[in-house]
């Protein structure tokens, strides 16, 4: 029966050091992206089987399409009417669960004009695979 020796201790120390690095980096970036700018415009996002609807701050409502302006900050308030969904704009790395009875928030600022896919990433039943919407970022 063998025993541990010094290479193993050094190896474990290196692993722990790398993990500390990973943890610190992740903490730092998470800290940055969670800081919501104060002038972010609130968009209410509601998921339901199987489409997305949006409400702007001025009361305009949209279904299946979301029109935003380039280089503005937006804060999504995401909720659901029936089961869990997940609001995802992969291109802008925006992702958060839509949970009934709960409002989750995430913010972003689109820096490119164009059309981007919005999809549901949490299994929600029959047409989950096609629960999509379109994000249209307009150059102002």
């Amino acid at each position: 029966m063998g025993h541990s020796n010094w290479p193993e201790w050094i190896y474990v120390a290196v692993v722990v050091a790398l993990l500390c690095y990973v943890g610190a980096e992740a903490w730092n970036i998470e800290n940055l992206v969670e800081h919501v700018p104060e002038d972010a415009e609130v968009i209410k996002v509601t998921g339901q089987q199987w489409f997305w609807s949006f409400e702007h701050e001025d009361g305009t409502k949209e279904i299946g399409e979301l029109h935003l302006k380039k280089d503005h900050a937006y804060k999504f308030e995401i909720t659901s009417k029936d089961v869990n969904h997940n609001f995802n704009i992969h291109e802008y790395v925006v992702l958060l669960d839509a949970v009934p009875g709960q409002i989750n928030t995430v913010w972003f600022s689109p820096n490119e004009a164009g059309e981007f896919d919005i999809q549901c990433r949490e299994y929600c039943g029959l047409i989950h695979y096609n629960m999509r919407a379109l994000l249209i970022v307009e150059d102002v």
Binding site: I29, N31, L32, V33, H35, P37, A73, V93, N111
Partner: peptide, 15 residues
Amino acid sequence: TAGEYLDRKAEIWNL
């Protein structure tokens, strides 16, 4: 600390 409009996409993908 965070600037006003952080490029979320760039930060996360760089990480």
